[in-house]
């Protein structure tokens, strides 16, 4: 693991700050993805499955009341999708910033 940033010699300093800028840009984009994905995570489970369950139950899809379906089926499907979307986004981001391996 490379924790030896402080031990770099001085002629590498400029190179270092470049590296740090790259790292913090990567981190900002990562955190932005997290906010968006977690907002969806919250909406399908706590929103559709709990808080707005009664309203959504007025809509029926096949034999399912929609709110009930979100609470016992739909939210779980969305969770799985979210992680795979995250994996794709992050793999792309890793490539963009040169962290792919």
């Amino acid at each position: 693991m490379s924790v030896g940033i402080g031990r770099e010699s001085s002629n590498q300093k400029k190179d270092m700050s470049e590296k740090q800028r790259n790292a913090s840009a990567y981190w900002r984009e990562n955190v932005r993805y997290l906010f968006i994905l977690l907002a969806i995570w919250f909406t399908v489970s706590y929103g559709a499955g709990v808080l707005f369950k009664d309203a959504l139950d007025q809509i029926k899809v096949g034999g399912f009341k929609l709110g009930f379906w979100f609470a016992q089926q739909g939210s779980i499907y969305v969770f799985v999708l979210l992680i795979f979307i995250y994996v794709r986004l992050m793999n792309k981001l890793d490539k963009k910033y040169g962290y792919n391996e």
Partner: peptide, 26 residues
């Protein structure tokens, strides 16, 4: 448990799967 609790059983379904989103992302 769900069989006897009906909708209330949803807490286990969402709770024990949704945690993986947090685990994977955070």
């Amino acid at each position: 448990i769900i069989s006897f609790a009906g909708y209330d059983g949803s807490v286990y379904l969402m709770g024990w799967t949704g945690g993986y989103v947090l685990l994977a992302l955070l």
